[in-house]
Amino acid sequence: MLQKDAQRLSLLLLLTPFLLWILLLVVLPQLGIVGISLREKVGPRQFTFGLANYLAFVQEPIYWNTLLRTAVMSILVTFLALLVGFPVAYYIAKIAPYRSQTALFLLCLVPLWVSDLVRAFGWIVLLRETGLISGALQAIGIIKGPIELLYNDATVVVGLVYTVVLFMIVPLVSTLNGMDNSLLEAGHNLGGSRITVFRRIVVPYAMPGIVAGCIIVFMMTAGSYLTPILLGGKNSMWFTEQIYDQFITRYNWESGATFGVLLLAFTSFVVWLGLRLTGQKLATTVAKD
């Protein structure tokens, strides 16, 4: 009996910090922004319940265009990151000899830990009008005057892919590492061409890693702030920038909270759709790495 009470007490002791954390810092704050997004300002310090903030979002093309633009670019970045990252992950996991495998993987991990700010700053040093690339192009005589490579969409995409591609490679390497080479051998022995083996064996095997990578990358891109702002400049039209603008610059918390809820709802929907289409589960996908 005593034993059982002690068990229950210790369970309670372990549950308390978890529940306090998850309720006070995750669940209630999220509900808080939902709550604040549903109130309308009718006078100074006077509010009523209503959907006016959401209506304002729908009626103002700038707002929903920005969300749409953020979404489309995030999907593009996710796709490019997969395209760029897969060959690298395949090489590290399957082709490289064991010793350089570890070294290459670590090489991939080091920039992963460098702050976004430093990476964006590096790109600025390279790409701005007085930057390295512009200077180098002038020196070899390809262009005459200085050229501004910042502040356009292509640069933002290149910078975003750079920021997130490592988060694609890490889960891909983990999954591909588990793949037995005899599967490939069997595929070849049964007469499959290189492409068939890749499409029918490698890709299905790597699917959990692909899905995990895509989810992490998509969420990171859609929620990123620094890279689009610093590389895209004033015209970057990124949705997180709108949220910041409403909250801090205009002090319109109702509208900012609405945007926050919309961003979260939208990205969750895309992730849910991705999981649904590929038959994976969130907890197993994200928690694995």
Partner: peptide, 9 residues
């Protein structure tokens, strides 16, 4: 999976 900006606000 919640964007950092949203955790912040």
């Amino acid at each position: 999976v919640i964007p950092g900006v949203i955790i912040g606000i």
